[in-house]
């Protein structure tokens, strides 16, 4: 990056910062009672929850998940569980 004219950052360059190291806990998507409501996607502060439209299988990006637990707390059918990260 040209540094000479003020310090300008490239679009989305933050993706190089793997914030997954913040996490003490990470979610497990149990897929037992899931209704596909997508609240886990809406409420993720990082935007790391993703899924497959057809199969309704959800997962999260462990490179960036900070383990806040909001997805599990807000899941209306208790289908997400937070588990400790082994460090």
């Amino acid at each position: 990056m040209d540094f000479k004219v003020g310090i300008i950052a490239m679009p989305g360059a933050a993706l190089s910062n793997k914030t997954g190291s913040f996490a003490n806990e990470t979610p497990v998507f149990k897929h037992k009672t899931c209704t596909g409501c997508n609240l886990c996607i809406y409420f993720c502060p990082e935007g790391v929850v993703y899924g497959d439209k057809k199969t309704k299988i959800y997962d999260y990006d462990s490179d960036y998940c900070k383990g806040c637990g909001i997805c599990a707390e807000e899941c209306p059918v208790d289908d997400i569980e937070m588990v400790l990260v082994e460090k």
């Binding site: 933050a14 993706l15 914030t19 913040f22 996490a23 935007g47 993703y50």
Partner: peptide, 17 residues
């Protein structure tokens, strides 16, 4: 697609922000 969002992950906001 999540990596292409206009406000991307990788920021240093607090967990649960």
């Amino acid at each position: 697609e999540t990596h292409n969002e206009l406000f991307t992950m990788g920021h240093t906001g607090c967990s649960g922000c």
